[in-house]
Amino acid sequence: MKARLQKILGYVIATVAVLLVWAALSLLIGNPALPLPTVALLQLYHKLPDMLPHLAVSLWRVLLAMSIGTLCGSIAGLIIGRTGRLDLIAAPLLYVLYPIPKIVFVPVLLVLLGLGSAPAIVLIATVIFFQTLVTARDAAKSLSPDLVLSVRSLGASRIDIARHVVVPATLPNIFTALRISTGTAIAVLFITESIAGNTGIGFYVVNAWGRIDYPTMFAGIIAMAMMGVALYEVINFVERRLVRWKD
């Protein structure tokens, strides 16, 4: 209970700090392109009913995409990391593909998958896939051989080793990767939504920008930040359930 209060207090302090800096900057610059946070917050209050469907679509896209990407990336990473011969082939391939900014495939995906949710989901899933893949592979490779030997001596099969040793050992690393890639996921979401289609919070922000409606634009940005916080908290919640032993 105390920990939860501390967390809420932390969020409050962080929010106030951000708003204060924002207000100071806004006053200093004195340009309508950076309205006061009070103006943006008021606008958020007024526009929330309009905004909610867009937010819901975006949240759904990013959650689904991150789940698919993490699941596939972890499984592939663990298998590659624990299979020496496969790793010989997969590792170079991985290092060729990993640094390519996946965002360059937006035009291709738009042509192939249309303007709906599919391009955003595929793109985000791909970005997350590579990040968790690399993390899971490295974590699986660095597993203590003695630990594996000990459990094998109990008569454990490969499946048992995966279930009792490899997966739980690498889970904390996978969650770290997931947390790091949340920012990237939202950035990719914004870019795909702003380039094509007429749904999602990314579209909403860019649309307001096109109308030179800066207060609405910033209201959308605040909503996006809140979506990010929600995502982090979902990840933390799942991690607490699955990685109890680290507390």
């Binding site: 003695d146 630990l147 459990v151 001596s153 040793v165 050992a169 032993w245």
Partner: peptide
Amino acid sequence: LQDYGLLPW
């Protein structure tokens, strides 16, 4: 073994 092979999780 020397490190006991216990699973921390």
